[in-house]
Nucleic acid binder design. Sequence first.
DNA 1: CTAAAAAGTTAGCTTGCACTAACATTTTAA
DNA 2: TTAAAATGTTAGTGCAAGCTAACTTTTTAG
Lengths: 155, 155
Amino acid sequence: MKLSNSLEEYLKTIYILKNTEKQVRVTDIAKRLKISKPSVNRALNTLKDLKLIEYEAYKNIVLTKTGDELSKDIIKRYSTLKLFLTEVLEIDKDIAENEAKAMKHAISEDTVKKLENYINKILDLGDLDCGYDENSEKCKNCVKITAKNRLKKQV
Amino acid sequence: MKLSNSLEEYLKTIYILKNTEKQVRVTDIAKRLKISKPSVNRALNTLKDLKLIEYEAYKNIVLTKTGDELSKDIIKRYSTLKLFLTEVLEIDKDIAENEAKAMKHAISEDTVKKLENYINKILDLGDLDCGYDENSEKCKNCVKITAKNRLKKQV
DNA sequence: CTAAAAAGTTAGCTTGCACTAACATTTTAA
DNA sequence: TTAAAATGTTAGTGCAAGCTAACTTTTTAG
C-alpha cells in the first residue's frame, strides 16, 4: 500500500504515540505534527477508509493489523535514512530528522534494505578507523568512520 | 528559493532540454514529464511569476540567471543522490532515478555537500576492495567497493 | 498561399491537504 | 452535579497541481 507522505506522517505519529502515551488522541497528533485538529480529523477518516486504523467519532484511535505493519515499515524507512544521515554523513540530528522525514516517502523496500546493509557494514566495523594510515599505500581503501554511540534504538 | 518538487522537475527539465535540444517547448516538457500541455503551461506561468524563466505566450522559454543557477542546484542534488544510489548502494539505474527524483526535494545544500564528499571518499579509492580479506582481523575495517566506471558525467 | 497539422492557451473540473469558524461532545473541577 | 475547559467534528475556504475539452496561434506541406 502506497500512502502520501502526509498520511505516512500521520500513521507514524499514531504508532509513536501508541507506544509512548496512554492514549492516541486527535489533539496529541495535531500538536506533534503542528497541524490543525480538523486536518487531523480528516486524515484519520482517510486512514479509517483505508482500514489502517479503527476510528469512531469521539472514540479512541487504534491501529489495525495492516496499519500497525505499515507504520513499522514507514518508521523503518525513516529511521534507516536518519541513521545514515546522522551516523555516516554526521549531519545534525534536527536537520537529519527533517530530511529523513521528507525523503522516506521516496525510498523503496529494496533500497531501505540495501542502505541498511551498507550502514551495518560501515558501523559494525567498530570504532574509528582501522588503524592503518588512511593515506598509506597499504590500506588506502579503508574508510575512516568516526561515528560513536551507534545503533542506538531509533524512533 | 524553495520550490515544490513539481516545479523543481519542470525547472530541471527546462535546463536539460536547453542543453540537449535546439529549443525548449511546452510539448517537449510535457512529453518528458508525461504531463499534459495545459499543466505544463500553468507551471511555466508560475515559474515566470517567480522570475525563474522568461516566457511570453507562444514565445520561446528561456531561463533567467536565477533560474539557471537554481536548475543547476536542483540537478546537483538529484545527480548526487542518483550517484549514491547507483554507485554506492548498487541500485538499478531506473529505480535510482525515480527515487533520486523524489528525494532530491528533501535534501539541503549542506547534506548534498557531505554526501558528495562521502561518495568521493568512497569512489576515489580506486577499484574493488583493498586486497585484504574482508573478514580477516587485519583489515576488517576496509569497505569493499565494487563500482566501476564511476564519476561519469551525470545529468 | 493557404489549409491542415502541430503547438500552445484558456476555461473549468478534480483531488489532496492545509486552514478557520462554529458547533458538539466529553472530561474535569468547584 | 453542573458549568467551564478540553477535546473532537462539521462546514466551508484556499491553494497546488493534475486532468479534458475547446479554442487560438504558429508552423509546415502541397
